[in-house]
């Protein structure tokens, strides 16, 4: 497939903290980690989805002025960003594994409508749902 969505970015408050979370806890792989002065292009990948990169971007000058950057950090911290959804084979097993690594779950696994889902947040405030379909 030559045409596809390649990168989708998240705003994170602290890229070191996000790296530790997405790579160290969720087990994502680093695709690109390039610094240029104060600016850092950091993207990670789900280990089973090599064609897609998740960008972990810090709202910062000069792309955004200081007030806008602060506002974006506030919005993320208030949980105002749209939800992210990840498919998993076994929601309860993934929940146990991630919780043991210190991931902050906001909803324990719940079975409903033939699926099992659970919610967690990253350290910045981005909300994730993990869904096991047809459970």
């Amino acid at each position: 497939m030559s045409e596809a969505i390649q990168v989708v970015g998240l705003y994170v408050r602290d890229q070191d903290e996000a790296y530790e979370f997405y790579v160290g806890k969720l087990g994502f792989k680093v695709h690109t980690d390039q610094r240029n002065g104060d600016y850092r292009w950091l993207t990670v990948q789900h280990p089973e989805q090599p064609g897609f990169q998740l960008g972990l971007f810090r709202p910062q000058p000069p792309v955004h002025d200081a007030v806008t950057a602060q506002t974006l950090n506030e919005l993320v911290a208030k949980g105002a960003m749209p939800p992210l959804v990840m498919a998993v084979d076994d929601c309860r097993a993934t929940y146990d594994r991630l919780r043991d690594k210190g991931v902050e779950f906001t909803q324990e696994p719940v079975a409903r409508y033939g699926n099992v889902d659970a919610n967690f947040r990253d350290p910045s405030g981005n909300g994730w749902k993990i869904v096991q379909e047809g459970a």
Binding site: N73, E74, V76, K78, E104
Partner: peptide, 24 residues
Amino acid sequence: TPIPTGQDPRLLRRLLRAKDRIDA
């Protein structure tokens, strides 16, 4: 540029934790 009058994102993240607990 005016100084942001908003709350510290780290405080907001902790307040979000309380909101999440209500949700749960």
